[in-house]
């Protein structure tokens, strides 16, 4: 961020999905907002959610700053970032002016190039002392035959991780509901060490309950992330391999910097235009 001073009179609106069932869904968004607020970069920092309060549509009332940067804390482009959020916020394009205010709509955090750095860091922290050439790094997402964007964001990250030359024996993408299936993780690689990092925004039902079952770590879905901890079992020795399972990438405290990067990129693009 080179333009922090220019944001001191602006507001940040972090937009999350939230959940009526899982208290961990909104936790990372709230935590990132707390950290950005603590840094004193913006005059105001607020969150709004699709499935929790405050809702997207009343976020207009939250701010007194004239300039508002709205950043979707979503993992990819899609239905929510292209349809639901613009509709509920009454957006008319990248910048919307109304009632003496301007709302700048930034790209979702998950598609920023700096997410690659986060994934690489998360993989290194997960198992710092293992020989990387004998290790497969698998980035796992939801995947659905209904939306190609669901897998595109992860394939892009895998390509970028490869380009970093980190030395891993293999870097792969895998999905819950689409081939290559994460349930077949031991068939996807012959390597003895396997790191699995979920490309999700929160430790929700998928990363905490569904994927551990697909991996074979758990036999059945159980309680929410905040109520138990599957991540302290690393590594798990399963199917003749050593398996490390990470928390969702969106829970990484460094995601704060990705949020700020998206604001900075919006500023740069607007200045270039």
């Amino acid at each position: 961020m080179n333009d922090l001073a220019r944001l001191a009179d602006s507001a940040l609106l972090l937009l999350g999905h939230g959940s009526t069932e899982n208290p961990d869904s909104s936790a990372p968004t709230l935590a990132h907002a707390d950290e950005i607020r603590r840094r004193g970069i913006f005059a105001e920092v607020q969150c709004a959610f699709w499935k929790e309060e405050p809702g997207f549509s009343i976020s207009d009332y939250l701010f007194e700053s004239e300039t508002i940067y709205a950043v979707p804390n979503f993992i990819s482009e899609g239905y929510f970032t292209r349809e639901v959020i613009p509709r509920e916020l009454g957006l008319e394009g990248p910048s919307t002016r109304r009632n003496g205010k301007v709302i700048h709509y930034c790209d979702p955090v998950g598609i920023h190039t700096s997410m690659t750095r986060l994934l690489a860091g998360r993989a290194r922290e997960l198992a710092p002392d293992i020989p990387v050439q004998e290790t497969a790094l698998i980035i796992v997402g939801h995947g659905t035959g209904l939306n190609a964007k669901s897998t595109e964001a992860i394939r892009v990250q895998v390509d970028r991780l490869e380009a970093l030359g980190l030395g891993y024996g293999q870097i792969l993408d895998a999905y819950m509901e689409e081939a290559p299936f994460i349930a077949d993780w031991d068939q996807l690689t012959p390597l003895p060490n396997v790191l699995v990092v979920p490309f999700f925004i929160a430790d929700g039902l998928h990363s905490y309950q569904d994927i551990p079952v697909l991996l074979g770590i758990e036999s059945a879905p159980t309680a929410a992330a905040s109520q138990r901890d599957v991540f302290r079992q690393n590594p798990v020795h399963l199917r003749g391999r050593s398996l490390w399972y990470s928390r969702s990438i969106g829970t990484d405290p460094s995601l704060v910097d990705v949020i700020l990067d998206q604001v900075h990129d919006f500023q740069s693009a607007a200045a270039a235009a």
Binding site: E53, S59, Y61
Partner: peptide, 10 residues
């Protein structure tokens, strides 16, 4: 009560 004060002030 998220946004309650903001809505009240509005």
């Amino acid at each position: 009560y998220p946004a309650a004060l903001a809505v009240w002030a509005a």
